[in-house]
Amino acid sequence: MPFKALVVGLGQIGMGYDLSLDAEQIYSHARAFATHPDFELVGGVDPSAERRVTFARAYARPAYADIAAALAAQAPDVVALAVPTPYHRAALNEVLENGRPQAILCEKPLADETGAAQAIVAACAAKGIALYVNYIRRSDPGAIEVGRRIAAGLIEAPLKGVVWYSKGLRHNGSHFLNLLESWLGPVQKTAVIDPGRLLPDGDAEPDLDITFEGGRAVFLATREEDFSHYTIELVAANGRLRYEQGGALIEWQPTVSDSRLDGYTRLAETAETIASGMARYQWNVAAQLAAALRGEAAQLCSGDKALALLQTIADVCQRRPAPA
């Protein structure tokens, strides 16, 4: 029997990103649950009547104006919370008061501040409901393969890297901080190189030096209004990993002996492409979520890990210098 899934919030990540795209591109919760064989999309929730009509037409499933009505009618196994971040806590409380899903998949970040995030994690734990946060990249097959190679020593320590991000540390930089934790282990130490800009929504764009359990990386912020830029370069003892275009391109460039200079080693001229699944990233998350629901190992970000990540970001932002 497939797991019944309800999507709360029918904006871009809930429904909109892939509405006008071909079926092979899966960027929304609605399309992921509608197409993955381990799930049945049973409904959507949104206060907008226009979005409810769009959802019902696109997926031939009922759409509800409020969470309680949807839970009473559908009794889902999984609830995806895709409402704006400030409403995460209220929406989750409404789910917990009116239903008992096996798991909740919450959009990132878990909350705007750590107090609300702690309350969300505690509330799910008290009800015995698994909580996951939608950091999509760690569920990508290419990213999982990179992690496997690092764990197996095929990408050899020591590892040092540079990460370029834009649109704020909490909003977008957290994706790459979370991904590097999945590859290199927990954050051990952070240092602020430059505090960067403070954005209108309270997010910030610092340059950081971050030490992980298994490596170290410098995070550098760029301006989203100029262009989006999300890349990672990791240098290992035996080669270089390039994670480009937000993960759409992953390349491993191993070391080889330099035939021109005896005793020297260089990077191979030809890189190996590691297959990425970012064209259907939300389907990949659904696949990992299904594995978790079956009690199998899964590459998902737990609520506890998302809370720790938010605490790391809050600590960094608190070290901003006081205004002159």
Rank of each mutant, 00 (worst) to 15 (best):
residue 214 G to Q: 05
residue 178 N to Q: 09
residue 153 G to K: 10
residue 159 L to I: 15
residue 152 A to Y: 00
residue 177 L to D: 06
residue 188 Q to E: 13
residue 173 G to W: 02
residue 142 G to H: 03
residue 163 V to F: 08
residue 152 A to R: 12
residue 195 P to A: 09
residue 169 L to Q: 13
residue 201 D to C: 08
residue 183 W to G: 03
residue 131 L to R: 04
residue 185 G to K: 02
residue 133 V to N: 12
residue 196 G to T: 05
residue 193 I to R: 08
residue 175 H to A: 04
residue 163 V to T: 11
residue 172 N to I: 14
residue 171 H to R: 15
residue 196 G to H: 05
residue 146 V to C: 08
residue 139 S to E: 02
residue 155 I to F: 10
residue 152 A to Q: 12
residue 143 A to T: 14
residue 183 W to C: 02
residue 129 I to R: 00
residue 135 Y to N: 06
residue 185 G to Q: 05
residue 130 A to T: 07
residue 194 D to A: 15
residue 146 V to M: 06
residue 219 F to D: 03
residue 159 L to T: 05
residue 145 E to S: 09
residue 139 S to M: 02
residue 208 L to H: 10
residue 202 G to F: 06
residue 168 G to M: 11
residue 190 T to K: 13
residue 182 S to A: 15
residue 178 N to C: 12
residue 192 V to E: 10
residue 220 L to V: 14
residue 200 P to D: 15
residue 211 T to H: 06
residue 174 S to D: 10
residue 133 V to H: 11
residue 167 K to F: 12
residue 178 N to K: 00
residue 156 E to H: 02
residue 180 L to V: 07
residue 180 L to P: 06
residue 212 F to H: 03
residue 129 I to L: 00
residue 145 E to A: 12
residue 144 I to H: 02
residue 183 W to H: 13
residue 219 F to V: 04
residue 168 G to W: 06
residue 215 G to M: 01
residue 192 V to P: 09
residue 130 A to Y: 00
residue 212 F to V: 04
residue 205 E to C: 13
residue 200 P to N: 13
residue 214 G to P: 03
residue 131 L to K: 03
residue 177 L to M: 14
residue 199 L to G: 10
residue 138 R to M: 14
residue 204 A to Y: 08
residue 130 A to F: 00
residue 192 V to N: 10
residue 147 G to H: 04
residue 174 S to F: 01
residue 218 V to M: 11
residue 201 D to N: 15
residue 187 V to S: 06
residue 217 A to Q: 05
residue 182 S to L: 08
residue 151 A to D: 15
residue 208 L to N: 11
residue 174 S to E: 08
residue 145 E to P: 04
residue 144 I to M: 07
residue 129 I to V: 09
residue 208 L to F: 10
residue 151 A to C: 03
residue 146 V to S: 05
residue 162 V to E: 14
residue 197 R to I: 05
residue 156 E to W: 00
residue 142 G to K: 03
residue 154 L to Q: 15
residue 193 I to L: 14
residue 147 G to I: 06
residue 203 D to R: 08
residue 194 D to Q: 14
residue 192 V to L: 13
residue 144 I to A: 11
residue 198 L to Y: 01
residue 181 E to R: 06
residue 161 G to A: 09
residue 168 G to T: 14
residue 144 I to S: 01
residue 176 F to A: 02
residue 195 P to C: 11
residue 132 Y to T: 10
residue 210 I to E: 01
residue 143 A to V: 12
residue 205 E to H: 12
residue 158 P to V: 03
residue 169 L to C: 13
residue 206 P to W: 03
residue 214 G to L: 01
residue 166 S to W: 02
residue 215 G to W: 00
residue 141 P to Q: 05
residue 205 E to S: 15
residue 173 G to H: 09
residue 136 I to G: 00
residue 154 L to P: 00
residue 217 A to N: 09
residue 191 A to H: 14
residue 187 V to I: 15
residue 130 A to R: 11
